[in-house]
């Protein structure tokens, strides 16, 4: 059974709206909501946490309709993008906050706090003021604070965005391990496809208030379905309708609107096409190749511009993309 079910959830601001959205989060799953800024992913988290009210739709937590519940009664853990630690409290008091609100016995609070301190590797920092902590330490305190009251689901808003690049990669692994250890169903919101892939078992792609696609990670990655979804995932080589698309389509037996050529498609067997080297991009170090009137960016050993190249593309590894869905998909997909 799903822990969290969003049924036709939507909201609107002047000039922007979140289209009615259906999602489910099951036990043991970590769902990454991937989208650029302005896509509505943070709003989605705030709606689930109860910090904002939807204009339509329902939120079910373990079968119970919590749509109109105030945030403090929902029992969900939310970790804020800038952590929002309480500056007037120590590390231990921050973590204990949710437990004290629930009036747990002192001994139980102490046990749970030291358990979390150990889990996060924060022993010895109990009495420190949170303002004196490094970014990575703050992140772990925020996570411990959100986990302490044993929330029924955990919501993470860009958990790594406040950290610098070097720290991010290391902490992404660490966070994935901690989430696995905590075994709380989790929704994590991010704009970084690599981060989403590292943390999540399931993926939902959100663009401009529209849910483009969702499902198990591998399924979505292998078959993004639409151009917008493929772009969100960071797939760059997208071939639009044209001679090349037509040629490839002949081999595939039908004509899709768009194709994605991942590097994996350059296999040395399959369809043989001829391309002209146009030049190299210095930002991505990709080589721009014109194939049958379509410009494609490929990662090849450096070639002089103007030279001709023969490529073998494996049609089985080419991803087909449809148009953007104009009607929101109304059936709730299990993820």
């Amino acid at each position: 059974m799903a822990v969290l079910t969003l049924h036709g959830l939507s909201t609107a601001y002047p000039g922007w709206r979140l289209a009615p959205l259906h999602l489910e989060l099951s036990h043991g799953a970590t769902l990454a909501v991937l989208g650029p800024s302005g896509s509505g992913k943070s709003t989605l988290l705030r709606l689930i946490a109860g910090l904002e009210r939807p204009t339509a739709g329902h939120i079910f937590l373990e079968g119970q309709d919590i749509t109109s519940w105030p945030p403090h009664r929902r029992g969900l853990g939310l970790m804020f993008q800038d952590y929002a630690l309480f500056p007037h409290l120590s590390v231990a008091a921050n973590i204990a906050f949710g437990l004290e609100i629930r009036r747990l016995p002192r001994a139980a609070i102490q046990r749970r706090v030291s358990e979390l301190l150990a889990m996060m590797g924060l022993q010895g920092m109990e009495e420190r003021r949170v303002g004196r902590l490094s970014g990575g330490e703050q992140q772990r305190v925020a996570l411990a604070r959100a986990l302490a009251p044993e929330p029924r689901a955990l919501l993470l808003d860009e958990p790594l965005a406040a950290l610098d690049q070097m720290l991010r990669q290391r902490l992404a692994e660490e966070l994935a391990a901690l989430l696995a250890q905590a075994s709380v169903p989790t929704i994590v919101v991010t704009h970084d496809p690599a981060e989403a892939c590292r943390l999540a078992s399931h993926l939902a792609l959100l663009h401009d208030g529209q849910l483009l696609r969702h499902g198990p990670l591998a399924e979505v990655l292998h078959n993004p379905g639409t151009v917008a979804a493929a772009r969100l995932l960071g797939l760059k080589t997208i071939v639009e309708k044209g001679d090349l698309a037509q040629r490839l389509a002949d081999h595939l037996g039908h004509a899709p609107a768009y194709l994605v050529l991942p590097d994996a498609a350059l296999t040395g067997r399959g369809v043989t096409v001829t391309g002209h080297i146009l030049g190299q991009r210095y930002d991505t170090l990709g080589t721009l190749v014109a194939i049958h009137g379509t410009t494609v960016e490929l990662f090849l050993p450096p070639q002089p511009p103007g030279s001709t190249i023969t490529l073998h593309l494996d049609p089985d590894r080419i991803r087909l993309l449809g148009e953007m869905p104009s009607v929101p998909q109304l059936a709730a997909h299990r993820i």
Partner: peptide, 10 residues
């Protein structure tokens, strides 16, 4: 910070 307290049950 007040929102964080709300999600923690305050």
């Amino acid at each position: 910070q007040a929102e964080a307290a709300a999600t923690l049950g305050a």
